[in-house]
């Protein structure tokens, strides 16, 4: 689905992460976030990398695993009303390219963050907790699962 074109896609959320240029834009946006944080004078390099990792993972959790439904009307009578964007991607098909890409990006960011924080223990705890929060909802076993009914409706 080419973004901005006329298309017959019932729910564009399912295919938007396959659009041309979106992976590159995503990586560049992470780079921009990092550069902006680096420009703040009193932040150390370790703090900047940890902040980049945390802010990226928080944003990913909110937009992919918390917000449900679609911001637009869909002609399928609201089938995706109770599904998060991650669950809507590729109509629930697991291990597609976009899903793999969005799984690998926080992991690479975690590796870089661990290196640049010199494997400090406090940064390790924070970054690992943040990574787990973003990796666990992506597991196929958790597709459509709402723990303790949180975020069910």
């Amino acid at each position: 689905m080419e973004v901005g074109t006329a298309h017959s896609e019932v729910n564009p959320n399912t295919r938007i992460m396959n659009s041309r240029g979106i992976w590159l834009t995503y990586v560049l946006a992470i780079g921009l976030l990092h550069v902006v944080l680096l420009s703040i004078p009193f932040f150390s390099v370790s703090l900047v990398w940890t902040l980049t990792n945390i802010i990226h993972n928080m944003g990913m959790y909110i937009f992919l695993h918390t917000v449900k439904g679609t911001p637009f009307e869909t002609p399928d009578q609201g089938k995706a009303r109770l599904l998060t964007h991650w669950e809507q991607m590729d109509y629930g098909m697991q291990f597609t390219s976009s899903r793999k890409f969005l799984t690998i990006t926080p992991i690479i960011l975690y590796f870089l963050t661990s290196f640049y924080t010199k494997y400090d223990s406090l940064h390790f705890v924070i970054n690992t907790a943040s990574l787990m929060a973003v990796l666990i909802p992506k597991l196929p076993q958790l597709h459509g699962v709402r723990i303790f009914g949180i975020n069910k409706y």
């Binding site: 550069v35 902006v36 680096l38 420009s39 703040i40 004078p41």
Partner: peptide, 10 residues
Amino acid sequence: STIDMVFYTT
């Protein structure tokens, strides 16, 4: 301010 800080750092 953010843009100025980015340009200065660059």
